[in-house]
Amino acid sequence: MSDTTATSRPPAAPVLSTRQRVMRQLLRDKAAMAASAVILLLVLMAVFAPLIVALVGHGPNEQFRDTGLTAGGVPLPPGSLFLLGTDVVGRDLFVRLVVGTQVTVFVAIACALTAIVIGVVIGMLAGYRGGLIDTLLSGFVDVVLGLPLLITAVALVSVYGASFGIMMGTIVFFTWGPVARVVRNLVVATKSGEFVDAARMLGASDTHIMVREILPNIAGQVIVYGSLLIPQVIVLEASLSFLGLGVPPPTATWGGIIAENQTNYAVAWWSILFPSLFLLAATLAFNVLGDGLRDALDPTAQRSR
């Protein structure tokens, strides 16, 4: 913004830091705000799941064969006693979905964070140092991207047995590589900047340059990538659970609940619809938030508005 154009605008617009500008833009983005509210709600639901379960008074795996099923043994539709209805063995669907939120939120955050930390560390080293680690990284990522994700995941989980740890390991294995590649490319584009030369001339160490100079410059894009990685992780976890290869039953997970009820659509549509809606709300919220973040962080996107 040059001085000549500034005079024609209302004066005294305060100079904003990038963070302030991004926050302002984001706060004005209604879709992103609604998405944040949904995410907050899901996180609160996960945190307070034990409390909600206690308030409802139904255990997540408790079978209410007398009150939760009709006399003919058919699951109950949504009602006052069972908020979102019951499944074929008379379990409270609402309680199971709330408990399932814990798995989803935990896996999403833990896996996405792990993938991003590994990806950022290795991507920065590869981008900054180049040479052997760069070659190894690009080779490794090519191999990981060459492996068919779901088939390999299914095969791995089956060979090593379905467990929480194996599932999370599989998800991280398939997600950190692309993060590392993105970070590597960002670092390569950033490290020729003058501020890096300046820091080096001042005698800064490589670690200092990487952590204090380059990282803050690429942090925005990493955050966008991370917020778009979370829905992928959620879908992956749900898909593995759906295929019976995620968290072993009877632990409630959204994907697992859909799988359990897949053949019960004729008697209990709610047992498929509600878990689908929960899942969709979560992935959509993160996708919308990620989209809003990208717009807010991208200076060129603002000009086109």
Binding site: A31, P231, V235, A238, S239, F242, G255, I258, Q262, Y265, W269, I272, L273, S276, L279, L280, T283, L284, N287, V288, D291
Partner: peptide, 22 residues
């Protein structure tokens, strides 16, 4: 269109399949 596209992206395949089936 953007909202519709984001919603489409957010649908896990198995949810789409299950709902279409139903």
């Amino acid at each position: 269109i953007t909202i519709a596209a984001l919603a489409g992206m957010s649908f896990p395949t198995f949810v789409v399949g299950t709902l279409l089936f139903y």
